[in-house]
Amino acid sequence: MTDFAIAAEPREENGRRASRRLRRTGMVPAVLYGDGKPALGLSIEARLLRKLLPDDRAYTNVITLEFPKGKETALIRDIQMHPYKEEVLHMDFLRVHAGERVHLHVPIHFLNETTCAGIKAGGVLHRALVEVEVEAPVGRLPEAIEIDIGKLLVGESLHLSQITVPEGVVLLPLQHEDDKEIVSIHNPRTGAEAEEAPETTA
């Protein structure tokens, strides 16, 4: 189900003071929850996270948490970062298992941006969405939703209902009849002309 694995250790102490002590030893506090089981406090070596987290695939793929006695499979659900340091303060993991359908935010990647017809004609690209929430089976979660904008013209836009997603993947906003705009090409002269238009008085 996954190519990502990381060593973890259960932890008994909770609270801010315990977390600060843990971080001073080079460990990061975390919690594992979900699947109808009690939440489990755990700790992971900060150096291992520095290797794992730069890989964007880690955020949409199943992670195997390897404990001294047993394993758990999970998704990264939340990461709390230091306000100004490249340092992980805390992580949340959600337990998952084969066959389960889960919700996850995945990034949107735009293809053929440099050859887009509307941009080549002088239009300005507006990205209304950079990610979208999807539902998909564990093991088939897309790493990204790819959208080809090569033929998009000035004045045109694309909405969620107009794109094709992998089999088994559901775009959750559409389940709520929220057909969000994803991307559009604007005419840059529209804004300039509006600013130059003379004011009218009653």
Results as ranks from 00 to 15, higher is better:
M1D: 13
D3V: 04
F4Q: 08
A5V: 10
R11Q: 12
N14A: 08
G15P: 10
R16N: 14
R16Y: 09
R17C: 07
L22N: 12
R23A: 03
R24T: 11
T25D: 13
G26C: 10
G26N: 13
V28L: 08
A30K: 03
L32N: 08
D35S: 08
D35A: 12
L42D: 05
L42H: 12
A46Q: 13
R47Y: 06
R47W: 06
L48K: 11
R50D: 15
L53T: 08
D55K: 02
R57I: 08
I63D: 09
P68V: 05
P68F: 04
K69W: 00
K69H: 08
T73K: 15
A74P: 00
L75Y: 14
D78W: 00
Y84T: 03
E87V: 04
V88P: 06
L89N: 07
H90Q: 05
D92P: 03
D92R: 07
F93V: 06
L94N: 07
E100K: 15
R101K: 09
V102N: 14
H105Q: 08
H105P: 00
N112K: 04
C116D: 04
C116W: 01
G118H: 02
G118K: 01
V124A: 03
V124H: 03
V124S: 06
L125F: 09
R127N: 11
A136E: 10
G139R: 00
L141S: 14
E143D: 12
E146V: 11
G150Y: 03
L152N: 07
L153E: 15
V154E: 13
G155Y: 11
S157R: 07
T164D: 10
V165Q: 12
G168H: 13
G168D: 11
G168W: 15
L174T: 05
D179Y: 00
V183K: 05
S184N: 11
P188V: 00
T190E: 15
E195K: 14
A197W: 03
